[in-house]
Design a protein around this nucleic acid. Structure first.
Length: 400
RNA sequence: GCGUCGGUGACAGAGUGGUCAAUUGUACUUGGCUGUAAACCAAGCGGCUUCGGCCUACGGAGGUUCGAAUCCUCCCCGGCGCACCA
């Protein structure tokens, strides 16, 4: 077991602790007790579990990761669990439908990319990284039965997400019942003092307490963050494209923030940055566009660097305010005509799509004299020319 | 297992023998207006096309028919009800 050996220095600064328990926090289970522990100066084991269900973490996850970082900065011990086993079963907490069981290979692939993404926010040298297959895989049917005994079916189906599906006549798999048991047992396995999670995770988080008690461990405290909506103000979902992924390029990240609904500004500032709240208040009082630019800069700085953020901002102004070509343009190898070249490089998917875009005046050749609209399906794509497809996709044709 | 209702494009959900590449809403793409915001307006939203059409698609496989998403048979999958005494 990766036990932390060197003597830790834990901060008991009350102001910092209050901020920790307040900012981006929707609910704390055992708040007074937790505060007492934090003030007491013993190093706590702080757990966060993330299932590798997709190769990219998005900014919704960052809410918990930042909270984890807050704890890390106070000197507490971070245990980050990659749910390679739980991912197979699939959590239903944030879904209104059953999740497919993921293939092992997919999970293996996804989990590899996780650490460098997480590393952007956490000091990995001071983070205990674990896979939950380590302790979940060897469990016997008998043990699982014992865990299951700690919960009732009524508890499970009383959950809103489940209730709704049942009412709608949708299938709920028995397998889904297993998920909270597994997440709960994670807490037992790593002897968590505190678990971080979103409000949608409440049931699963509480399961940890139940199982810890069964195993004669003190039940963990729970720090829950509010759910953050996607950029457009609706439920965040990768398939809707209203998310920012943590490994997005600086320019993309900046642009994504700029395309965010104004109403989301305050939440993103509070949850996804650590800009001091009093400063945030002033920023939000100004023009939404200015505020958004500041937010974009803060977020890009967090995942890239200050310089990258400044560059992204310059680039943004250049492209969208001055309508110029961005500094860095994706280069694609020619495959003959423009249409073929775009398809070949996966910029568009079919001849029909090209026709549609061309008809909508969405394809333009960028010239020093201005933009030239491409409407001909047989338009050439000379080496060295730059084309703009839609609002923000630029490609430069290079030799094959 | 029995009974019953159902399985349609990313999702929801129409369609129940030809006028169906399939109404509508949402999502998505694009154009306009803007602050790459929202709202709003407009167009598109399976593929190929010599723009006449052609091909592939309504859980799967067969069949009936000039013609099937629509009818029949079998299979697979889901919801609900039944389940002991009767």
């Amino acid at each position: 077991m990766g036990i932390f050996s060197h003597a830790p220095k834990v901060s008991t600064d009350e102001k910092a602790i209050d901020e920790l328990l307040l900012r981006g926090v929707a609910e704390v289970i055992g708040k007074d007790e937790l505060k007492r522990k934090l003030l007491g100066g013993t190093q706590l084991r702080i757990k966060l579990g993330i299932d590798p269900t997709s190769p990219d973490l998005h900014i919704g996850r960052a809410v918990s990761l930042l909270k984890l970082r807050d704890f890390q900065e106070l000197g507490h011990h971070i245990v980050l669990i990659v749910g390679d086993f739980t991912a197979v079963i699939g959590d239903t907490s944030d879904k209104d439908a059953e999740r497919p069981m993921l293939e092992r290979e997919v999970i293996e692939k996804n989990k590899k990319t996780y650490f460098d993404q997480v590393g952007k926010l956490l000091d990995l040298s001071r983070t205990e990284l674990r896979y939950n297959s380590e302790w979940l895989e060897p469990l016997t049917y008998r043990e699982i039965g014992e865990h299951a005994d700690a919960f009732s079916v009524a508890d499970f189906i009383a959950r809103d997400v489940i209730r709704r599906r049942l009412d709608a006549g949708k299938r709920v798999s028995l397998r889904e019942v297993l998920y909270p048991l597994m997440q709960g047992y994670d807490s037992v396995a790593v002897k968590a003092d505190v678990e971080i999670g979103g409000m949608d995770q409440k049931f699963n988080l509480l399961a940890g307490r139940t199982l810890q008690e069964k195993y004669k461990q003190p039940p963990q405290n729970i720090v829950m963050s509010p759910l953050i909506d996607g950029l457009d103000g609706t439920k965040m979902s990768s398939s809707k494209g209203n998310v920012i992924t943590l490994n997005a390029k600086a320019a993309d990240m900046y642009g994504k923030v700029m395309s965010m609904a104004d109403e989301q500004l305050a939440a993103y500032f509070e949850l996804c940055t650590r800009t001091p709240m009093h400063e945030v208040k002033d920023i939000l009082a100004g023009h939404p566009k200015e505020a958004k630019m500041r937010l974009a800069k803060e977020i890009v700085t967090l995942y890239h660097s200050k310089q990258a953020a400044e560059k992204a901002q310059e680039n943004f102004e250049k492209v969208f305010s001055k309508k110029e070509i961005p500094e860095e343009v994706t280069e694609i190898k020619t495959a003959g005509l423009l249409r073929e070249t775009l398809i070949h490089n996966g910029i568009i998917s079919s001849n029909s799509e090209f026709s549609r875009l061309a008809l909508a005046n969405a394809i333009r050749r960028m010239e020093s004299s201005g933009e030239i609209k491409i409407t001909n399906a047989l338009a050439p794509a000379p080496i060295g020319t730059v084309f703009r497809i839609g609002k923000h996709r630029f490609v430069k044709i290079i030799k094959n």
